[in-house]
Design a protein around this nucleic acid. Structure first.
Length: 401
DNA sequence: TCTGGGGTCCTAGGACCC
DNA sequence: TCTGGGGTCCTAGGACCC
């Protein structure tokens, strides 16, 4: 989806179209401010001058999305608000409306599924779609189906998207960026040399800042320059797994399937404080925040029908270094008090001298609350590790426990 | 004035088991 | 005096993605 969070706001405030705007930051109640100052006025008639500007922003947030007009100024995702304010002080800034984002996310994904059912979720604003078995999916290399999907999404949501069609997920993802916004790009296997090899390595899904810097040090900037290297050379520098992977992707090879269903591995809640807190001096405040996070994650688990047995905490210090501790308990849980108690024990194992800027709580090793696995060990029939012969609980087997 | 929140996957060492 | 070879689970950190 094109500039998804920002486009969601433009549906409500079309008068902001074409203006530099960024989405992100803290928990400011912009809607309430606008409603108070412009009571009775329909949202699309609130004057542009009434909206908050980046230059007046105070706080620790980062930008989630910038409109294309704001990107002209060098503002982009993941950039700190304060830095963005220097680059584009006149940009309008709005917080993320999570409820509306989730609603439109579900709407566009369901729209796609009605046309092409094999869809892999990649977060709120992105999916992979398998065109292989869709009737007409191969016409004009997929362009006909891509156009239909774009049109249907626009009709259902009022939002635009960009689509890349290619022989695999790796290349499709790269292709989806060739023609933004509201574009379609078809890349065939034969286009590897002309369209993929010139790309900066950082464009590849899986090559982040670290791998990019290391490749740079080795004199490699483009995908084609990876392809020119020997597999063994890549393995020597990046290890067996990453080296072999880099070689494969540089030659356009990727056989990952489009995965339509997956189970969550963990659920977490974390928060960055408005100001750094100290474990001793701000003990009461930290304790309240911690309890709240534990309750939130417990609510999330129950609402979605999961239990977990690995409970962990995460701290970020003022120097931005991160520490985590976790503990696995015998029985699965989705109980806030249990999570709080085990989390509290984890907290005792971590250094607390430095000021803290973030605290998080995580529950992992999840199972569906209604699954057999989720039952506590005491509720389960005792089955020996060696399988069926142990299931009759003969005296010899019983002695194993 | 530094740098959100929610995730996944990988690595690596140690405990423990057969 | 020299000490296997598998395997799984747990824990901590880190890279990366949206």
């Amino acid at each position: 989806m094109d500039a998804f969070f920002a486009s969601v706001e433009l549906l409500r405030y079309p008068q902001l179209k074409g203006l530099p705007m960024v989405i992100g930051g803290g928990r400011r109640k912009v809607d309430e401010i606008l409603a108070r100052d412009h009571a009775g006025l329909p949202l699309d008639e609130v004057p542009v001058a009434a909206f908050p500007l980046l230059k007046d922003y105070v706080g620790r947030g980062v930008i989630t999305t910038a409109t294309y007009a704001a990107r002209q100024f060098g503002v982009g995702s993941a950039m700190g608000m304060m830095k963005a304010a220097k680059l584009c002080p006149q940009a309008i800034v709005l917080p993320v409306d999570f409820d509306e984002v989730r609603r439109l996310s579900r709407l566009f994904k369901n729209t796609i599924r009605e046309i092409a059912p094999v869809v892999e979720d990649r977060g709120v604003d992105e999916v992979y779609i398998d065109f292989t078995e869709v009737p007409g999916g191969q016409r004009e290399g997929g362009r006909v189906l891509a156009r239909l999907i774009q049109k249907s999404i626009l009709q259902a949501t009022g939002l635009t998207c960009s689509i890349g069609v290619a022989p695999n997920k790796l290349i499709a993802k790269l292709a989806s960026e060739f023609n933004k916004p509201n574009g379609i790009s078809i890349v065939y296997a034969d286009d590897l040399e002309s369209k993929i090899w010139p790309l900066a390595v950082r464009k590849v899904n899986g090559i982040g800042p670290k791998a990019d810097a290391k490749l740079e040090r080795l004199g490699i900037r483009t995908v084609g320059e990876i392809a020119a290297k020997d597999v063994q050379w890549l393995i020597d520098h990046f290890g067996q797994s990453t080296g072999a992977w880099m070689h494969a992707i540089s030659w356009g090879r990727d056989d990952r399937p489009v995965v339509t269903e997956s189970e969550p591995v963990s659920m977490s809640r974390e928060t960055t404080f408005d100001r750094n807190l100290h474990a001793v001096r701000d003990r009461a405040e930290l304790g309240a925040i911690f309890t709240h996070l534990c309750e939130k994650v417990a609510e999330d688990l129950r609402r979605k029908g999961y239990v977990g047995k690995t409970i962990g905490i995460k701290l970020r210090y003022d120097d931005f270094k991160t520490a985590t501790r976790d503990q696995t308990i015998a029985a699965f849980t989705a109980d806030g008090k249990t999570i709080r108690q085990i989390g509290g024990q984890c907290l005792k194992r971590v250094p607390l001298e430095r000021p803290l800027r973030l605290l998080g709580v995580r529950v992992g090793a999840l199972a569906r609350a209604d699954s057999a696995e989720a039952k506590t060990p005491s509720q389960r029939v005792a089955v020996g590790q060696r399988g069926s012969e142990a299931a009759d609980a003969s005296p010899a087997t019983a002695s194993l426990f």
